[in-house]
Design a binder for these strands. Structure first.
Lengths: 245, 245
DNA sequence: CGGATTATTGAAAAGCCTCAAGAGTAGTGG
DNA sequence: CCACTACTCTTGAGGCTTTTCAATAATCCG
């Protein structure tokens, strides 16, 4: 594997979290004519019902997937970090069933769907790496279903905070004892199936219990073991064993 | 495409719902040394933490994926019908993050992981079909997250009933105006993030409103349009457009 | 038929939501 | 650099959905 800094570096880093790639695979990704663009927070990268013509991944910043119900309620179903492919599924499934939106100011790299498809067809190692990545995303969906459906609000919020801690570290952000919370309390609520008011109260409770502390959006994990056990957090579902054996 | 009745027929039918397969692909699946077995309801096909050695799909009956939280609560995160591959993700992700359990008396067909992997490597059309299938499962997870996180109990239950109606028809079961509900009310509750008591009350409400009727487990949809709109159900997320254009 | 699971119903409690208002914070333009 | 505006966060009070607990009826299965 080369050490030069090509455009798709965050993507390669992400795929290597869970799969092996050979030099040919890495060269094939690096050779794709990706085009970078930077957009402000809240920009839509993809809308429900749309048929995308390009395929992209996150270079810097965060994005999320959201679904809106007919009566205007929102559910944030996925938070994406640098390296995440945000619209491969439309390559195969067609019309999108959800929106993809920038959470922060965001830099993405995109390539025409045709070039992307050709590349995957000729590199079984890459297909497998991306398939694996999609399966890992599905594993997070399953854990979130358990979280939203069966855990009380304090455990539910603590669980999301634990997940961010682990995933942000795996993406090379944050530090070992905390990170900058990427979302407003309303967005946290839409992720957890709670109201922003209740998220606020529960955050204060976790703080009062000495599990975390906050200055603005900066979150410090004061007691990782207790936070983990309050959350019933077990990182197995993230399938990052290659990083944390 | 041939018309003979090979073992993997439900699998082929399922894949054709969302992808094109050529004769070579179908021959390749049919040639795999699948072994059938039938197990009673509640049998575990796979347990969390396990490393599976085989790869299988459902021939007849229903199964589900469940996750258990540390304090013993259960969430049913996926219901599978004939044709569904129930453990491909472990081929790529390793240790399972959830259990797979038979919902009814169940017939499955399984093949050693090695043979399965070889087949996918040599047939890009099949990889794509199975990848697509996994992406469609992820789309259902997203819709369920919206359902559990943001819809009140009546809409939530109505939505699941609508989904069953469409998916069972696509799998060749049930009829146009109803089906045999495959789960107990407790299992419905674990799927929806509700208690069985509340599921029972909400079922009665839907019945009182004239949307459905029940005799035992047999469910009849009396007013599909009203049920759909009470559920805010839009089948787009099932990505079955090939069947229902 | 008998035992176990499943469905049904009531009453009371709990958790989370709604509504509302005030305080803090960040970004913008003069 | 300040002031203005728009978010975002915070806190309180009351209400509603859903849960818990409990007890009985119905159904399934061998």
């Amino acid at each position: 594997m080369t050490d030069t800094h090509h455009l798709p570096d965050p993507l390669i880093r992400k795929l290597l979290n869970r799969s092996s790639l050979d030099d040919g695979d890495i060269a094939a990704i690096s050779a794709l004519p990706f085009r970078k663009r930077t957009v402000p927070a809240s920009t839509y990268l993809l809308r429900e019902g749309q048929l995308p013509l390009r395929c992209g991944f996150i270079v810097e910043g965060y994005a999320f997937r959201q679904k809106l119900s007919a009566d205007g309620n929102r559910s944030i179903v996925c938070v994406m970090v640098p390296g995440d492919l945000f619209d491969v599924q439309n390559l195969l499934l067609g019309q999108s069933d959800h929106d993809v939106q920038a959470l922060t100011r965001l830099t993405v790299a995109e390539v025409a769907i045709g070039a992307f498809r050709d590349m995957t067809m000729s590199r079984p190692g890459l297909i497998n790496a991306m398939w694996t990545d999609g399966l890992a995303e599905a594993a997070i969906y399953r854990e979130w279903l358990l979280n939203v459906g069966r855990r009380p609000a304090p455990a539910r919020l603590a669980h999301l905070l634990c997940e961010f801690q682990v995933r942000l570290r795996a993406a090379g952000m944050g530090s070992d004892d905390g990170y900058e919370l990427p979302m407003t309390q309303e967005q946290l609520g839409d992720t957890l199936g709670l109201t922003s008011v209740h998220v606020n109260r529960v955050l204060k409770t976790l703080e009062r219990q000495g599990l975390i502390s906050r200055k603005g959006r900066q979150l410090t994990v004061l007691d990782w073991n207790s936070l983990q056990s309050a959350a019933q957090f077990n990182p197995r579902y993230l399938h990052l064993d290659r990083l944390q054996p």
